[in-house]
Amino acid sequence: MTRYVVGRIVQAAVVLWAAFTLTFAILYLLPSNPMQLQLAAAGIEQDSLTPDQFAAMQHKFGLDQSIWEQYWQHLSGVLHGDFGDSLSQQVPVLDLIGQRIGSTLLLSVSAAVVSLLAGSALAYLATFVRWNPLRLVLTRLPALGASFPQFFIALFLIQFLSFQLGWFPATGTEGVVSLVMPVATIAVVTSSVLAQVLIKSFDETLSQPYIITARAKGLSRTAVHLRHAFRNAALPAMTILGVIVGLTVTSSIVVETVFTREGVGKLAQEAVLSQDVPVVLAVVTLAATVFVTVNLVVDLLYPLLDPRISHVRAKVTAPEVVPA
């Protein structure tokens, strides 16, 4: 068991490193002039510098080093918890993220919880209802929900719930009310994705012979659905939990921009626009960490839910030499 956990943690670390390296490569190897970006961010005209001054500046930004040295410097910085300074705002990247992470975390976690509840409820209903027309509508609903672009849902909600009905504020980060529409925007998509997987899994589970065994005992449909089908149907859906949480994080970029919420998503969007490389690198690493952690937790929880999966290698079961 310990060996399995250690293995999985090492694997998670490798994924994180790969995400960091890939982002670094994309940002630094793309055809752009990092020196120009740095100077522009610092508000200095390149033409006004003498070659000596230019070389000094280059040295100051560490851009006179080879790509490998730069990569190594960044990586060791990150390992020591130092993501460098933001180019556009001249403050440590970690401070920038630290100010905003709370709001984004609240948004993501609420959205993940809501999608989990809504997605499961929808899947449960869609497979439980026996009246065919309603069943058909409920099964088709997730496909519709998953295909709406998020900015469209956001604008739709703002138009109706804010401007026309005036129930919720259209923008802002203050209070629980400001959270309702952003969470709804994200949850429509993520709960639909979850419901799609769950409904398919439910249908498959309900056609299993052990469901007949359960019904033949005289159990009610509710009992069969809850006690026998739900857990078995939820197992395959567990694997996409990481994707769902990841989606809520990436969705925050669009949602925070549309609802003008001060969060990491909006920070990322602004950083990309102003080509603020250290900030982008930090946000991507953060998102990858969330994704990897959720997946790790799911993998560790899996054997608790499915007794057939055991992480104990070469487990010795009781010999089955007993008669028949």
């Binding site: 299993q208 012979p209 052990y210 007949i212 065994t213 359960a214 033949a216 026998h228 857990r231 078995n232 197992l235 839910l305 499915d306 007794p307 057939r308």
Partner: peptide, 13 residues
């Protein structure tokens, strides 16, 4: 009822 295939007739979880 005793169903057909014992390998799949019991709830695995």
């Amino acid at each position: 009822l005793i169903p057909q295939d014992p390998m799949v007739g019991l709830n695995p979880t």
